[in-house]
Design a protein around this nucleic acid. Structure first.
Length: 588
RNA sequence: GCGUGGGUGGUCUAGCGGCUAGGACCUCAGCCUUCCAAGCUGAUGGCCCGGGUUCAAAUCCCGGCCCACGCACCA
């Protein structure tokens, strides 16, 4: 399915891993103790970059969308994940073929070859028995799997809350659940009106069997999730805001045709044509596309792929992924799921709490309602032990068929036996009640972003090489707004007072809130290259002209072009550059 | 978790039974240098971990850890 992209001979992932280690973006954790697969540390530049990506996400999905952000615990009691379906969903049963060593999902094997449904819920030992009884064989080599052990892999990190054995708990596999469980309170903060959205940026944990590909598949990772709670009947997204955003879509039918036949459609067209089934999903795809553009994901290496029905999560009805191309593979960097009322209804059922909001009617509804108030002093002596059931039957009958109470007596049946009850004894009345609204359980639309994967994508897509004066130059063309360092200040020479001037300039720029690096080591070219490799967009050099007229040069990372500006105008120049209101010319 | 191939200064590597383990780049100090990885001098720093074989192990064997690729997995 992966589209072959011809890239540099050396894999981008490899080049990036090397750059990441050498320049301090990210590297394997705990290496002095041998390392642990799937755990990475962000170095100084990586941590800054990640922080900027998170800030950009917050600005876009929390602030601009007028949502609010919370921060829940990562430790989650078992009951929560039982209710959400994760305890079952995360428990995979594997059986290993003794001949070809293939790992096979035992539950899938059983479901495919027997009448057993929902084999996932079986205990592993029972699954093993079924495999033996039905004489199931390895699907790849045909070796019988009878009596092979079925092992259970729980992909959640388990822990105990409290001393001793404690209460069972897990590190959360997604941040979403810590939002859902607090819904009753969050709805209160939203003043019980839909729609509203709650965001969270935090870590999730999955005990991956086989972590791979640098930051792509790790065991602890940062995600940024937005749960939008919408009224299923009444809330439409503000689609007009993103109507003309163009999306490269890879819907189900295109995948089935096994093509790479993408459809370039505007958000408006794609939702109108039903390619994207839900307008909220369409809306967020548009918002995400704009955000990716802004932070520097290469639009030519980005697509939105619809999940095939069999890969959808247990909670999702329609789901699209944002995928970025890296080394010819398409990597999921965000998921957009319509979770319906799955989570809220499960938590409501399991906890016994209300997970609804009250939705007032436009106009209060006057409704006639028939009620009964059976006179038990009459019914008791008359019907003995059947009296309570008769009373219940009368109540139901009043609701469904009030006309039955029109005569002197009313007939009810309880467990097949018929009883005749005098209407007088039923306390039957018709009354008018005023209903001002109803309780509704919201649907949930969830855009969920992998921050680490986004950071990785930005680095890969920014990694560039050109040739300056016959020398190969590697630079990271990161968007200036997310680059770890915004400005680097150099004295051309650390003598004749240039160093002092440059240090003063760096300090004054820092005081304006910019992230500034100062470097006086080595010749000027070397310092430019250092900054190029960590993606610093602007380098400012204090030279001998500065001593004369208080001007400095500003150099652009991507073009290496320079421009001379007055030192005291530097803050506003940088600000304008960041805002895209000016660019650096070539007049040095 | 299985299979294949790998792990030598910060990075990239040479060495593949006996070497004070070599180089390049980086880094640091000094000199030089008036805008793009220049030069000179000097310095710091290494055989993934644990067993075994051998007079002798970076080198061979076994186990572990980590990495890459393939299989499986990715709710």
């Amino acid at each position: 399915m992966a589209e072959p992209h011809e890239r540099a001979a050396r894999r981008e992932g490899e080049r990036l891993a090397e750059l990441g280690r050498r320049r301090g973006f990210f590297f394997p954790s705990y290496e002095v103790y041998g390392g642990v697969a799937g755990l990475y540390t962000y170095g100084p530049h990586g941590a800054a970059l990640k922080r900027h990506v998170e800030a950009a996400w917050r600005d876009r999905f929390t602030v601009k969308e007028d949502n609010f952000e919370i921060e829940g615990p990562t430790i989650t009691p078992k009951a929560v994940l039982d209710a959400s379906g994760h305890t079952d969903g995360f428990d995979d049963m594997l059986v290993t073929c003794p001949s070809c060593t293939a790992s096979i999902r035992a539950d899938h094997l059983i479901e495919d070859h027997t009448d057993v449904e929902d084999a996932e819920a079986l205990p592993p030992a029972k699954a093993g028995t079924l495999i033996t009884e039905h004489e199931l064989a390895c699907p790849s080599c045909g070796t019988p799997l009878a009596d092979e052990p079925v092992e259970s892999f729980n992909l959640m990190f388990e822990t105990a809350i409290g001393p001793g054995d404690g209460d069972p708990g897990y590190l959360r596999p997604e941040t979403a659940q810590s939002i859902f469980v607090e819904f009753p309170r969050l709805a209160e903060y939203a003043r019980s009106s839909l729609p509203f959205g709650v965001t969270q940026i935090g870590t999730g944990y999955r005990n991956e069997i086989s972590p791979r590909k640098g930051l792509i598949r790790v065991r602890e990772f940062t995600m940024a999730e937005l749960e939008t709670f919408v009224d299923p009947d009444r809330n439409d997204p503000p689609l007009d805001r993103v109507a003309d955003v163009s999306l490269r879509l890879y819907p189900i039918d295109a995948q089935r045709d096994d093509g790479t036949a993408y459809r370039e459609e505007s958000v408006a067209d794609a939702t109108d044509a039903g390619i994207i089934g839900d307008p909220w999903i369409g809306y967020y795809l548009g918002v995400a596309r704009r955000w990716y553009d802004r932070i520097g994901v290469d639009g030519d290496r980005l697509r939105f792929r619809q999940h095939l029905p069999d890969e959808r999560s247990h909670y999702a009805s329609d789901c699209w992924d944002a995928e970025a191309e890296i080394d010819g593979d398409w990597i999921e960097i965000a998921g957009f799921a319509h979770r319906g009322c799955y989570d809220l209804s499960h938590h409501a059922e399991a906890s016994g709490e209300e997970f609804t909001v009250f939705r007032p009617y436009d106009e209060p509804i006057e409704r006639e309602r028939a009620t009964v108030s059976p006179d038990m002093a009459t019914l008791g002596p008359e019907f003995g032990t059947d009296a309570p059931s008769i009373a219940a039957a009368l109540e139901e009958l009043a609701e469904t068929e009030p006309g039955a109470f029109a005569d002197e007596t009313v007939l009810v049946s309880v467990d097949g036996a018929r009883f005749e009850v005098p209407v007088d004894a039923t306390g039957f009345t018709r009354e008018t009640v005023t209903e001002t609204g109803e309780h509704v359980m919201p649907d949930v639309i969830e855009p969920s972003f992998g921050i680490g994967r986004t950071v990785y994508t930005l680095l890969v897509h920014a990694l560039e090489t050109d040739v300056v004066d016959g020398e190969e130059r590697t630079f990271l063309a990161l968007d200036p707004s997310i680059a770890p360092t915004t400005v680097a200040i150099f004295p051309l020479m650390d003598r004749d007072g240039l160093g002092e001037q440059a240090r003063d300039l760096a300090a004054s720029l820092r005081s304006t809130g910019l992230e500034v690096d100062y470097d006086d080591a080595g010749n000027i070219g070397r310092r430019y290259r250092r900054q190029d490799e960590i993606g610093t967009p602007y380098c400012v050099t204090v030279d001998y002209d500065t001593l004369e007229d208080d001007t400095v040069t500003v150099r652009d990372r991507d073009t290496t072009a320079q421009e001379r500006v007055a030192a005291d105008e530097l803050p506003s120049v940088i600000k304008a550059l960041l805002a895209g209101d000016r660019s650096i010319g070539a007049d040095g």
